[in-house]
């Protein structure tokens, strides 16, 4: 049986040589041992650099946003043409959501779904190795053997995957043009609220601690495929809704507003969490909102092309137990 990466390369090569796509957006090896990096491939000779493994942390759907696509016009193409994009199940759902919201035309995209068993959480890896620098690693038998300048240490794979990956409810893309690998169905678990069982005061303390780390770099917002507003509310200065400093309530308001604006559209890919340079963990916020949306409105983002996002519509019989 062909390895995942070889299958991927063949698929990409075929699409390019048969001129079904003009551009392939995928992952290639990054400059550091545990990092991959997005790559844009227009020529068949570059297809061999494509990889796919647990370091593929970015949600490539973000590059399909109109504003980002507009930036990638090269001198010899009028527009970006047809795009083949490599997508884990969560990324695929983001693409479907973008199509539903009319940001991207389905005919312009070739969605190459790929089987994903989870992405590494680099903070967990660093914690497990006491912050030491990693020079090499090897995956074998559910363990990853990390090697540095003067150490060798195995960590269990299940201990170092992202929380959102470990509780992934939709590991197989429901809409795709090609699929690489074997479907993963059966790996469903319930979304776990990390802060469940804590009192409101304890939850507030958790968020206080996390928000204080934020440096307002907006890596989270820019990494998110669904954050595509031409002018973000946090950037407006006339009127200015939020302060731009690192003052606590301003920073918290930014994050809450971003979560509310992506309510019912967030696919829980975790790209925002992984993009953060100071490891602010706001995943519980996003997860809570999507859980509420699923309970109240029976909707999960990106599973079907034939829906209206829940916050853009209503039902006369919506529950209103909280209204006097």
């Amino acid at each position: 049986m062909q390895s995942l990466e070889n299958e991927l390369k063949e698929c990409a090569r075929k699409l390019l040589t048969e001129k079904k796509v003009d551009l392939i957006i995928g992952y290639k090896k990054g400059a550091l041992p545990l990092r991959s990096t997005p790559c844009f491939i227009r020529e068949e000779k570059d297809v061999d650099s494509l990889i796919f493994d647990f370091t593929c942390s970015n949600n490539l759907a973000t590059y399909l946003q109109k504003s980002k696509l507009a930036e990638h016009r090269t001198p010899n193409t009028e527009n970006h043409g047809k795009i083949g994009i490599i997508a884990k199940a969560c990324d695929a759902r983001a693409i479907v959501q973008l199509i539903v919201e009319k940001q991207v035309k389905k005919e312009d995209i070739t969605l190459i779904g790929i089987a994903c068993t989870g992405i590494l959480d680099l903070k967990k890896v660093s914690d497990g190795l006491d912050g030491k620098e990693i020079l090499n690693y090897k995956l074998q038998n559910g363990e990853v053997l990390f090697q540095g300048k003067d150490f060798k240490k195995p960590l269990k794979l299940s201990d170092i995957l992202c929380d959102v990956c470990k509780t992934c409810l939709n590991p197989d893309p429901s809409v795709y043009d090609s699929f690489i690998g074997e479907p993963i169905s059966g790996a469903k678990t319930e979304i776990v609220d990390k802060l469940e069982g804590l009192s409101p005061d304890e939850r507030w303390e958790y968020f206080e601690r996390e928000i204080s780390k934020c440096i307002r770099c907006y890596a989270c917002r820019n990494a998110c495929p669904l954050c595509y507003c031409e002018e973000c509310v946090v950037d407006r200065t006339n009127p200015q809704w939020f302060g731009k400093s690192t003052e606590f309530s301003d920073t918290f308001t930014f994050h809450i507003t971003r979560m509310l604006d992506t309510a019912g559209r967030c696919v829980g890919c975790g790209a925002c969490i992984r993009a953060c340079p100071t490891h602010v963990d706001l995943a519980p916020l996003g997860i809570k909102i999507e859980k509420e949306i699923k309970e109240r409105f029976g909707y999960t983002a990106g599973l079907s092309l034939d829906v209206i996002p829940p916050m853009a519509t209503f039902d006369e019989d919506d529950k209103q137990e909280f209204i006097m």
Binding site: W204, M259, L260, L285, M311, F314, D315, Q320, F322
Partner: peptide
């Protein structure tokens, strides 16, 4: 109707982060 959905999510979120229920109310 749209407001009802927005308020439901807002209320859930505010309570989740630890703003005391009862500060923000709807009628």
């Amino acid at each position: 109707y749209y407001a009802r959905r927005k308020f439901a999510i807002l209320k859930t979120l505010l309570e989740f982060i630890g703003i005391e229920p009862g500060r923000v109310q709807f009628s």
